[in-house]
Simulated scan of single mutants.
Amino acid sequence: MPLFWRIFLLNAVVLITATALLLGPVTVSTPVLLTEAAVLTVGLAAMLVANALLLRVGLAPLQRLTRAMNTTDLLRPGQRPAVTGRGEVAELISTYNTMLDRLEDERATSSARALSAQEAERRRIAQELHDEVGQSLTAVLLQLKRVADHAPPELREELSPAQEITRSSLDEVRRIARRLRPGVLDELGLIPALKALATEFGGPGLTVQHRFGPDLPDLGPEAELVIYRVAQEGLTNTARHAGARRAGIALRRVPTGVELRVHDDGRGLGDVAEGAGIRGMRERALLVGADLTVGPADGGGTEVRLAVPVPVRGPAPVRVPALALAVPDRKH
C-alpha cells in the first residue's frame, strides 16, 4: 500500500473512532458543560497522541534512512541502512542502497585512475630530479672541487661553504626523489623499502623501530605500494604533528591477509578532524580492498592499522611434461 493511503487510513481510523464516540456515549449540550468540555479535551488529546504515535511508526524507516544519508562516508564502504517498512519506504531504502553501491564502485574506479596517474607523475618527476637536477648538481660539485684544488688558500676557504651547500642540495634532491618514487621498493621489495623508510625518518629526536613477520605472503605490486604509502604518510604525520619520541612499524600475517601497524607515543589525534593525509590513506586502502583504522594507541599516541586481504589462490596446476614419441621411419 502506498505511503499516502497508509497515513490517510490511519487518520481516518482516528476520526471515525472519535465520531462514533460523539454519536454514542459522548454528547455535547448547549451551552457546553464543564464536564463535557473536559471530556472533549481529553478526547482531543488522545486523538492527537494516537495520531502522533501512528505517524511515528509509519515514518520511522524514513527517519532511519535520513540518519544513514547524513552519516554515510564513501571512504568507509559497506555501511547500508537496513531495508525496513513496506511498499514505497522499502523500495526507497533499496534504491538508496543500490545508489551507494554504484557510487562506491565509481569512486573506487576514479580513485584508482587518479592515483595511478599520480604515481606515474611521481615516477617521472623523480626520474627527472635524479637524472637532470642530480647530475647537474654533481657536475657543479665536481667543478667546485676542481677549482678549489687549484685555488689559493684564501679563495679555497670561500669556496668551501659553496661546496657544502651544493652537497646538501644534492642530498636533498636525492631524498625527495626517493620519497616520490622509492627505487628500493621496485628493486628489493617491500621489507627493505620499509626498513629504509624507518631509517630515513629516524634521527636524534625520533627513534623508529621496525618489526616484520617471517612468513609474509606474496602481496603483489599494488598492495605493496599501498602499504608503503600508508606507512610513509603515517610516519610523516608522526614527524610533523605528533611531537613523538618513539615510533614503530610492524607488518605481520593475519588469518585474512597482512596487517600494517604504524604507532607513536605522541600527543594523539584529539578532536582534530581528519585531514587530507588520512583521507588519502583511506582512498589508497580502497584500491586493494583494505580496511584502515586511525585512532589512539595503547599507552597514548596514535596508531594506524591497515588490514590488507590476500586472495586465496588455488593450487597451481600440475604440468605434465610433453613426451617425445619416436616415430619409426616407414620404408615404402
Rank of each mutant, 00 (worst) to 15 (best):
L142G: 15
L100Q: 06
L74T: 01
T71F: 10
Q143D: 13
G78M: 04
D101Q: 09
Q143M: 11
E88V: 07
Q79E: 14
N97Q: 08
L142Q: 14
R102G: 08
D131E: 14
L144W: 02
I125S: 03
D73C: 03
T71E: 15
L103F: 11
Q63I: 09
Q118A: 15
L74P: 01
L137H: 01
R107E: 10
Q63W: 13
R107L: 15
G134E: 04
E88S: 07
A90N: 06
A68S: 15
A126F: 02
R76G: 02
R107F: 10
S111F: 08
I93P: 03
E106M: 09
E104C: 01
I125H: 07
K145A: 15
R67S: 09
P77R: 03
L100E: 03
T71S: 10
N70T: 09
L137R: 00
T138E: 08
R76M: 10
L100Y: 01
G85Q: 03
D73V: 03
R102W: 14
E119I: 09
A90C: 04
S116C: 05
Q63D: 13
R122G: 10
N70P: 02
L100I: 15
E106Q: 14
E119Y: 00
Y96E: 08
E121P: 03
T71N: 12
R124Y: 03
L92C: 01
T66R: 14
A90P: 03
A120S: 10
V140P: 05
E91L: 14
A114S: 10
A112T: 07
E128N: 11
S111T: 11
S110L: 14
L75A: 04
V83L: 03
A90E: 11
Q135L: 09
S94A: 15
T95H: 11
M69Y: 07
E128I: 12
A126V: 02
Q135R: 13
T71A: 15
R67K: 07
E132G: 06
G85I: 02
T72V: 15
N97W: 00
V140H: 05
N97F: 01
A120Q: 13
L137M: 03
H130F: 05
E104K: 00
V89A: 13
V89W: 00
S136C: 10
E91S: 14
A90L: 05
R86T: 15
R107M: 14
A139S: 15
I93W: 00
G87H: 01
Y96W: 15
A112F: 02
E119S: 12
G78R: 06
D131M: 10
T109N: 05
R102C: 06
P81M: 01
A139N: 08
L75V: 07
L75Y: 06
E106W: 06
S110P: 00
Q63N: 11
L129D: 00
A126P: 04
N97G: 06
K145M: 11
T84C: 04
S136R: 15
N70R: 12
A108F: 04
S111A: 12
G85W: 03
N70G: 05
S110H: 07
T66V: 10
V83Q: 07
A82I: 07
G87Y: 04
E104A: 02
G87R: 02
R113M: 08
S110G: 05
Q143S: 12
K145I: 05
G134L: 04
A114C: 03
S94V: 01
E106I: 08
